[in-house]
Every structure is written in C-alpha cells, then in structure tokens.
Simulated assay, not measured.
Amino acid sequence: MPFVLPREPGLPPVGWGSYAMTTLGVVPLVWRRRWPVPVLAAVVLVGLVYRTALDGPGQPLPYAVLLAFYTVALRCSARVRAVVGAVALVVLCYAVGLNSGTARELFFTGFCAATAYTLGRLQFTRHAYTAAVEDRAAQLERANRIEAEQAAARERARIAREMHDILSHAVSIMVVQAEAGPVAVRRAPERAEAAFEAISETGRDAMVQLRRMLGVLREDGPAGAVPAPREPQPDVAGLPALLERVRRGGPVVSYARHGAVRPLPAPLETTVYRIVQEALTNVVRHADAATVDVSLEYGASEVSVTVRDDGRGPAGPGTGGHGLTGIRERAAAHGGSAVAGPAPGGGFEVRATLVVSPREVGS
C-alpha cells in the first residue's frame, strides 16, 4: 500500500530502485525452509540498506523479517536460535535507533518479533505432536498386522491338528478293518460284516467332521452361500462311541473315570477327546496291541488323560511324531503337559494333564 498511495508533499516520487530493493527483500523467503538463518540475514541486510541508502516508502511492519524470524524459530535447533536471538536483539536496537529511537517503537518492534518467535515454536510443537501421532498410528497398524498374521498362523495350526486327528484316526481304523476283512470272511463271516460296518461308520463320521470344519472355513464366502452346519465339537460324552470303533479293529479297549466326575468346559472336553483319539490312532497304527486302557482322572484343578497299551509303541523316532507333537501342543494350550513313553511293566503309555482354571471350574 505505501507504493500505491501517493506520498506526502515534498517527498520524492517512488523510483525503480525502491521497487527493486523491496522485491529483493522478499524473494529470499522462497528458500526460507531450506536455509532459514541465511534468508533471515539476507532480508535484514536488504532492509537496512533500503533504509539507509534509499528514501523510499517504508512499511508499517517488517513483514519479511518477521516471517524469516518465525521460520528460524520453527526449524532451527536451540543453540542456533539462541545465537540468532542475541544478534537479532542488537540489530533491533540499531534499527530502532535509525528510525525514531523511542522506547515505544523499541517495545512494539520487540513485541512483534517475540510474537513471531512464539508462533514458530507453537507450530514446531504442533508438527512434533502430529508426527508422534502418525508414528503411533503406524506402530499400531504394524502391531495389528503382526497380531493378525500370528492369529492366522495359530488358526492354521489348529486346523492342521484337527484335520490330522480326524483323517489319521479314520484312515487308520479303516485300514485295520479292511486288512482284517478278508481273513474274517473266510473264518468268521459275522466278524467280516461287523468290520465292513465299522469301515462305513468310521468313514461317515470322518466325512461329517470334515464337512463341518470346511464349512467353517467357507463362512466368509460369497453372499448366498449355504451356511456351515452348526454342530457341537466332540466331547467326553463321545468317547464310548470312539472306543467302540477302535474295539472293532481288534484290541480290547477299557474305559474308566476316577475322581469327582463333572462336566468340563467345552474347549477342554474337545481337547480330551482329541488326545484320546490321537493316542488310539497311534495304538492302531503302530503298537500291535491286544489291550488298551483309557482312563480320565478328575482333580480339583486339573484333569488327567491316560492311554496305556500292551503293544510295542512307536517303531521309531519318526513314527507317530506328528500325533504326539499334536498331543503336547493341545495340552500346552490348556496350561498342561503331555508325556509319552514305555509304560511300567511293558507296553506304551501316553499321559496328558490339563489345567482347569478356577473361572472355568466355577462356570
């Protein structure tokens, strides 16, 4: 505006030198973010030269200097800001002396410079806070992604264990029954009929369990898909039927429960069922046993599962390894443990102890 409005009578008109120096005092602000201190020094120097060498229109406030000073407060370190502040105080006193030299002007100019500095520091704090929030959000996103990947890995491991238990048990029983079928046809036709019925029943049960598991995996499928059947997971009440299918394969299986028999939490009952199922699968596949004893012992805060046979146990370190590993993983998931090895007096024994938490006991 001082360049647009007419000057007071007696003052020389505005020349091209005034326009050039005023422009030169503003153009360095383009690079203020990259070089804040040199830009501040440049605009201050141009302002002093304009003030002393030219008799052009003055500005009511040194806008370019205030903006450059604001940028120094925003982007420079504390040490640089201290040095710039000390030099700025000297230059400020010198500039006021060139003009009116009054305390009023000194106070007003100092107040404007302090305001520019304060706004710069507030903006720095805002930037730091925004960066911290964005960094926190990125960390949470990474943590959520890692947690989702870990949850997916745990779910894959769980499904793999379930598939292994279902298929391994069913196929083992069916193979044993099928191998015994031809002999039974020649010697005891009624046993052959029972063997074929056992194969059929075992296959149907395996298909039902696999269909239920695959149906759960398809629950997030396309719209309009048939929903997965809602059937309960196997539990302790299903053990007699499981043992009966194994009996048809040859070994004599006994079943006993000790202690204060009571309902257990559903996940724990499913784990008990799967442990017995996998242990019996190993017996049928590897032990060549004549008798198998299955027992559940109910304690105050735990339940123990024992499967003992009179066979030879796994034939080697790799035999039945996945099944025994699965048993240990299932027991560990309930805060317990599982051991497998030769039984006292001969044979092989699998024993798992599962912890029942007080909250679960109360429920």
Rank of each mutant, 00 (worst) to 15 (best):
G203E: 00
T202G: 05
R257N: 05
H258E: 14
A184R: 08
M213K: 06
S168T: 05
A180H: 09
G259Q: 06
P267A: 13
R204F: 10
D220K: 10
E179G: 06
V185R: 08
A223H: 07
S200P: 01
A180F: 04
R136H: 15
G250D: 04
A184Y: 02
S200I: 15
I146P: 00
R142E: 14
A160Y: 01
H169F: 15
D165F: 09
A184H: 06
G181P: 00
E193R: 08
L214P: 00
R247C: 02
G249R: 02
V252T: 09
R154W: 03
D220W: 06
V216H: 03
R211G: 09
P267L: 12
G224C: 10
R161D: 07
P229T: 06
M163T: 01
A206Q: 01
A225K: 04
A184C: 08
V216Y: 04
A256L: 09
P240H: 12
R248C: 02
N144S: 12
G203M: 03
P240F: 12
G259V: 03
A138I: 01
R218D: 13
A228L: 07
A160G: 08
D205C: 08
A151P: 04
P240Q: 08
D220V: 05
Y255P: 00
P240G: 13
L242V: 02
R230D: 12
A178Y: 05
I146T: 14
I199V: 15
A180L: 10
R161G: 03
F196T: 04
L210F: 08
S200F: 13
R262W: 11
L214I: 11
I146L: 14
D205A: 15
H164S: 03
Y255K: 00
R218P: 01
R186T: 13
H258R: 15
R212F: 09
E155D: 12
G238E: 14
E179F: 09
E147H: 09
S168V: 00
G221T: 01
N144G: 09
R212G: 06
L239G: 02
S172T: 15
R218W: 05
R245M: 06
D220L: 07
E201W: 00
R245I: 01
H258F: 14
E231V: 09
E193D: 12
R257G: 08
S200V: 15
A143K: 10
P222C: 06
